[in-house]
Design a protein around this nucleic acid. Structure first.
Lengths: 143, 143
DNA sequence: CTACTACCTGGAGTTGACTCCAAGTCAAGC
DNA sequence: GCTTGACTTGGAGTCAACTCCAGGTAGTAG
């Protein structure tokens, strides 16, 4: 029901509010700006910089992408790809998806192993030379 | 068919051979020694240090544990636990097992999401404002 | 008007896990 | 016995991702 695009969301945050809203540190935001990951609003002639709500989304995006295993550099790539190059972003996502898949499989393999080792350890602890778990993992014995 | 324990494996490696055998760099081995992760054989009065075959196993252990997500510090803990404290090693293993489980679940969640995003992107790319994938991830739009 | 807090600028420090370098020592081939 | 390549020692450099700090400016509560 509003008239046009000039009537955008009013709330604009200071860096501290932004940090709190996005759940990161002020210093972290500045760091992201320094490395060019995050745009820094121009400093108004008087007063503090103000950040649009979209900045929260950007920060959340960064955090989420980090959790998935993207490095800040890759995230930067993703974000610039966003500006028009959908196909490339897709390709990156698919690539990352495959990496994640592999990582999951690695973790599962390790998990299976850990589990069986834990079992072995439990059942033989008393009589074993030392510890079946460590033995099976490759037994690092200080000579 | 050998007599007793004094007739242990004869092959003892120089650091370079050890590095090659374990698939790590010489500098990495030294680094591990510096931080106390790996025992350094005493320097013989003449000649180079010699490493027992067990050192290969130790290095492999470190690498594997790293892949699972143990930090060098944790690996060090694991290795000292090995010297007698089976229960504690078990506890650590179980703890790590739980962490791995959580990590796997996180990754899977992200993966599901990525996949659906990739689909969305593919199907709507032409008409979408920009890119559904990026939108859904939180759409970091440089304002 | 004065504190007080939050922001700004820039630069330096931190942590983990390496990686490189210089200058010296050693062993083995020719 | 000299050269060459590997080892040794100690320290410095690197990279990612922060984190902290000093010294100054801005906005706000009393």
């Amino acid at each position: 029901m509003s008239n046009d695009s000039t009537a955008t969301a009013a709330a604009r945050f200071t860096i501290g509010q932004l940090a709190k809203a996005a759940g990161v540190g002020v210093e972290t935001i500045r760091y992201y700006q320094r490395i060019g990951l995050l745009a820094e609003p121009a400093k108004p002639p008087r007063g503090y910089r103000r950040y649009p709500p979209a900045a929260i989304a950007q920060l959340r995006f960064i955090r989420r992408a980090q959790e998935v295993g993207f490095s800040l550099r890759e995230i930067g790539d993703l974000m610039t790809l966003n500006e028009g190059n959908c196909g490339a972003a897709q390709a990156m996502a698919e690539h990352k998806n495959r990496l994640i898949q592999r990582r999951i499989e690695d973790l599962r393999a390790v998990q299976r192993e850990l589990r069986s080792l834990i079992c072995a350890c439990r059942s033989t602890a008393a009589e074993a030379d030392r510890c079946a778990l460590m033995n099976a993992l490759g037994r690092p014995r200080q000579e």
